[in-house]
């Protein structure tokens, strides 16, 4: 059974079409990264899954249930870190988490959850005095209450520093290991790349790509950049040999260091060409086309 299934979901706000016949499936047990620039419709999609917003047309199921018909049943099994939330300023962190546990009829210890998100020392302080990052951790702790089957995280790393973002990824992995499905949105590519099994790219309310990150990278026209350091600056023969390798597009020389743009997996061929031209390769590295390029390519093409 799919954890999330959307069928031709359209949502219009007055004249604005936020989602245009969006169809998408998230399988059970996977980490699905929902990627797109701000305003692409990510939060609207999540709001529909939680029944905060009703679709204009189309249907969806969450864990096999229709959120419009059984919103409470859906939310009993889903942990949510929403977008644009606000905590109860006068209640403490512990009270927030306890409320989430009670609401889900769970038996978790609030302190254990607060320790997982690393704000146990602030448990008895009013949440109104928390920093943005602490608030984000608090709401994540609320989402983890009751061992949800599905975690829906809208821009989970908002307000977190790099260490916090890494902890967030660790928690996502722990939850997946426990058997949960994780659906999270982000406009920050590194976050998605680091943790997602599959990625969906949303642009202007339409899904422009869904695949694993590796496949997406292959599917784009982008290639690799190869940096090679030789023991001595290359002679013309060596350069000609390198340029003649199939797939090499450009070779730039800076002393003994060469920067080579190429398409496909031609790294070994290039290194062989230098060695057979009598040069010694001291060091080399490859850099794949960044996801950022990939992302820009997808979202700009459709824009």
């Amino acid at each position: 059974m799919a954890a999330i299934k959307l069928d031709d979901v359209t949502k219009r706000f007055d004249e604005v079409t936020a989602l245009d016949e969006l169809s998408m499936t998230v399988e059970e047990g996977e980490v699905f990264g929902f990627l797109g620039p701000n305003g692409a419709g990510k939060s609207t999609t999540i709001d529909i899954l939680l029944d905060f917003v009703r679709p204009t047309s189309g249907s969806c199921t969450v864990l096999g249930m229709d959120p419009q018909r059984q919103p409470e049943a859906v939310r009993r099994r889903v942990g949510i870190l929403p977008d644009g939330y606000h905590v109860y300023d006068r209640l403490t962190g512990r009270q927030h988490v306890q409320f989430a546990i009670d609401s889900k009829a769970g038996d978790d210890d609030p302190m254990t959850l607060l320790e997982r998100v690393d704000i146990a020392d602030a448990a008895d302080r009013k949440a109104g005095g928390y920093s943005k990052g602490m608030t984000q951790r608090l709401v994540l702790a609320m989402a983890l209450a009751g061992e949800p089957d599905l975690l829906v995280l809208d821009e989970p790393t908002t307000g977190l520093d790099p260490a916090g973002a890494r902890e967030m990824r660790e928690i996502i992995r722990e939850e997946v290991d426990r058997g949960a499905t994780v659906f999270f949105s982000s406009h920050i590519l590194e976050q998605v790349e680091a943790v997602a099994d599959r990625v969906g790219i949303l642009s202007e309310g339409e899904l422009v790509a869904v695949d694993t990150i590796d496949n997406l990278r292959d599917a784009t026209a982008g290639g690799e950049t190869l940096t090679v350091t030789l023991s001595t600056p290359p002679d013309d023969n060596a350069l000609a040999a390198a340029e003649s390798v199939d797939g090499v597009q450009d070779v730039a020389v800076d002393g003994a260091t060469l920067t080579i743009s190429c398409q496909g997996n031609v790294k070994m061929d290039v290194l062989d060409a230098f060695e057979s031209a009598g040069h010694e390769v001291v060091d080399f590295s490859t850099e794949e086309t960044s996801l950022e390029d990939l992302f820009m390519q997808y979202t700009e093409v459709s824009a």
Binding site: F52, P71, R75, H86
Partner: peptide, 14 residues
């Protein structure tokens, strides 16, 4: 308006 309701309705309350 504040978004507190998203925490409340994110939990299993109708």
């Amino acid at each position: 308006e504040s978004g507190q309701i998203k925490l409340l309705l994110g939990l299993p309350h109708s």
